[in-house]
Design a protein around this nucleic acid. Structure first.
Length: 293
RNA sequence: GGUCUGAUGGGUGAGUGGCUUAGCCAGUGGUCUGCAAAACCAUUUACAGCGGUUCGAAUCCGCUUCAGACCU
């Protein structure tokens, strides 16, 4: 399992590891799964995909529902197949929650009911967050104490679970780490912050050169889909709407990519099982894997 | 050489004697169980230098340094 912030060289490292270990690659990325956005989500290049078999890359449409729960189910089924023929499988991706779903598993909670979600969103707009918090307090006082009640997304999700199951959310949150039928070695790629940010900035420039604007323009009619709530697209949509200049949009893509990288680091650094390496230090990483097998 | 204007935290930019720190941005730290590249929380005491006036100076006065404008 290779984790790390965006732009830290995970994909390239994964291909090297896959080559050395004769392993296929399974992506743990919430956005690279979609077709039509190869540039903005920095999907593996054609050469990289030729060098190793990749899964969960551009294998569904942006209209398709996808989330960490579905990912867990699909990925586990795929891994069962892959481990029949491979000693190793390389997982790589920057979506912390998806990594957690794959490695630790999710509790058995219901998917979102789209209609309920829409109505909760409307209530949020009309009645305000306080109203939702008040209802959650009656349905699940325990969780209301724990949850960040300033965060609409969390409050709405908790309400959603309470309302669809008829039981308190906190009762169903087990937080138990699932047993997996395979051994997981977690490797993190990192580098000094200023170097990382410089790489991110330059990568955004390269995306622009490679045609990010055209790609975003194609996706513009679908901008309200969750798959397009993505750094690199949202900012360009603002430009298409005339809210800012192209140059400003590109600067925002860089800034938001840096912030995303920072959030990824806070998430991944928390996992004590992850060993951190410079992405170029392949020998040390292979030694580490050999020592942990 | 002279006159005038200005010098505020990483950037921008308000503040004209006390009423803790303007604000914004960048940055930084954090939260995280089905929208997660999402959503959210927290956060940085600076007033060019030296001296003076004052109970008290970023704010008033003087000198110095620097920058800009104008004059000769």
């Amino acid at each position: 399992m290779v984790v790390g912030p965006t732009g830290s060289g995970k994909s390239a490292l994964a291909v090297k590891l896959a080559t050395h270990l004769h392993a296929p690659i399974i992506s743990t990325d919430s956005r690279q799964v979609f077709r039509g956005m190869p540039i903005g989500t920095a999907q593996p290049t054609a050469e990289e995909q030729a060098a190793a078999k990749h899964y969960f890359i551009a294998d569904r449409e942006v209209e398709d529902d996808f989330n960490c729960g579905k990912y867990e189910t699909e990925a586990l089924a795929l891994l069962e197949e892959l481990f029949k023929e491979n000693e190793y499988v390389v997982a790589v991706g920057g979506s912390g929650l998806y990594v957690q779903a794959l490695c630790e598993g999710m509790d058995d909670l219901p998917d979102a009911d789209p209609a309920l979600r829409v109505s909760l969103k409307q209530r949020l707009e009309n009645e305000g967050l306080e109203s939702l918090v008040a209802e959650l307090r009656t349905l699940d006082p325990k969780y209301t104490e724990e949850v960040d009640i300033c965060n609409p997304a969390r409050v709405m999700r908790a309400l959603e679970v309470c309302l669809t199951t008829g039981r308190p959310y906190s009762e169903q949150r087990k937080g138990v780490t699932a047993e997996r039928p395979f051994h997981i070695i977690k490797i993190g790629t990192d580098m000094p912050r200023d170097v990382l940010y410089d790489r991110i900035n330059r990568r955004v420039d390269m995306m622009v050169e490679d045609g990010l604007e055209t790609e975003a323009r194609t996706m513009y009619p679908k901008r309200h889909l969750n798959a397009l709530q993505t750094v690199g697209y949202r900012e360009l949509f603002e430009y298409f709407d005339g809210k800012c200049s192209f140059e400003e949009a590109v600067e925002l893509v860089k800034r938001n990519s840096r912030r995303y990288a920072k959030r990824q680091l806070t998430w991944f650094k928390r996992d004590q099982q992850t060993a951190w390496f410079a992405p170029s230090d392949l020998d040390a990483i292979l030694d580490y894997i050999a020592s942990r097998r």
